[in-house]
Design a protein around this nucleic acid. Structure first.
Lengths: 247, 247
DNA sequence: TAGATTGTTAATCGATTAACAATC
DNA sequence: TAGATTGTTAATCGATTAACAATC
């Protein structure tokens, strides 16, 4: 079972680079942000307990998550904030910059284009595209809205791998198809439709009304339990005094 | 174990109304949307297979999910689209309207305020609030931006249970605290910070850069595997031909 | 009745958590 | 060395999936 040489083969074991669980991947950006916040406050070292508090998870989960990346902590001491920050950024792939194109520059597209976290977090907008000729040429932040027809050119010129869809629902599938045909393999979809894509293309969806509906479900449960009914089984706490639901 | 009367006690078993798994709750809005789309196309009945395809899940999962709500299908036939749609809406709590307040009316707040899916899906904006006096009075959609100081009045006047935070990160925790103090028990947070709330308050977070980072991680994995390397273990498919990542 | 499809069971898989040996 | 804290193990919990008996 064990290799002839008992020394650990760091290249294989310390950086698995494969097989990080999805749930862990989804938390890495949260840890990254927590580390950046600690660094900004001038904190050089943090224990898993402190880091977990900043990230809003429990420390066992955090240590387990970090163990998939390698052994970047020091027993008895904690984690070097700057070093761990770099390791997570590298694992996610943020040591390079990702060119991103946004299609559909309505209200939401404007908000996305002006979102400062975009540039600061390893992403760069290389194109804002809209199908409405009346919008083409409009200046949004540092960019000028281009015609939707420019999609293929922008994708190939900048080597875009990630596309953002903030069009109306009716246009989203067509835009997605064309993004994929142009070479995009990751799509962030804000339109309220289920996109169908070929194997090998990743889609993530952000949906305001889904989020609100999930909250509404829990809110209704709280109301059914009634004020003062005691702890709820599902939600992690007791109902607090609330105002009536509908005026 | 079984009650004296073998007849099923529908009130308890057909409508558990308690203990629906979180993962199922998160999919109910997706099913609701799929059913609405089917209804719009004039389809009156759908099998679990058809419905699952429209929702982008597999049919076993869909049937399992629906079984938590009750037995709303007909064996050998399928589900009545309109009936199931109503049952899911009722389960989520969308047979009533939820008054929502939005704090922070920058680019994103404007987008949210103008989002049509808001009203059509059981939610109603009852207040748009901003701390910047220069913005107060501005008309956004059907509403006029009000002073942040109006928060308590709006919450109590309309019985607001759900608050949306679209402020800068620095303001989010303060806004959240004040929302909770005013009686809000569900918060949808768009600011890139981990909010801390007392037990009994639900928080959901929507975070653009987190979503992009998750995509970047998978994108990097595809690049590491290399074009033509064959199926990836984690991602559900084979890498397709891609453009270079960085120009 | 024969065919179709649900609702449920049971097996499997993945995620979370507590506990603690390893080790700084 | 004594104290602190990581990295890992193992137990538990929850979610997914295939398969099929129930039943329209």
């Amino acid at each position: 079972m064990s290799p002839p040489n008992p020394r650990r083969t760091n290249e294989q074991e310390a950086r698995p680079s494969r097989g990080i669980p999805e749930a862990t991947v989804a938390r890495l950006p949260v840890y990254l942000r927590a580390l950046t916040a600690l660094a900004d406050r001038g904190i050089a070292t943090a224990s898993s307990e402190e880091l977990a508090r900043a990230a809003g998870v429990n420390s066992a989960k955090l240590r387990k998550d970090l163990s998939y990346l390698g052994s970047y902590g020091t027993r008895g001491v904690g984690y070097d904030v700057e070093y761990l920050r770099y390791q997570i950024a590298r694992e996610i792939g943020l040591t390079q910059d990702w060119p991103v194109v946004i299609v559909g520059i309505g209200n939401l597209g404007h908000a996305l284009a002006n979102y400062s976290g975009f540039v600061s977090r390893g992403f760069g907008i290389v194109g804002l595209l809209d199908a409405d000729p009346a919008r083409v040429g409009e200046q949004v932040g540092d960019h000028e809205i281009q015609a939707y027809g420019e999609l293929e050119r922008v994708v190939s010129e900048y080597g875009v791998a990630i596309g953002v869809i903030s069009t109306p629902a009716t246009a989203a599938q067509e835009v997605c198809d064309r993004m994929v045909a142009a070479g995009i393999t990751s799509v962030l979809n804000f339109a309220p439709v289920v996109l169908s894509v070929p194997a090998g293309v990743d889609v993530r969806k952000v949906d305001l009304s889904t989020e609100l509906q999930i909250l509404a479900y829990h809110e209704q449960r709280k109301a059914l339990a009634g004020p003062g009914t005691g702890p709820l089984s599902q939600v992690d706490g007791i109902p607090v005094e609330r105002s009536p639901l509908v005026p």
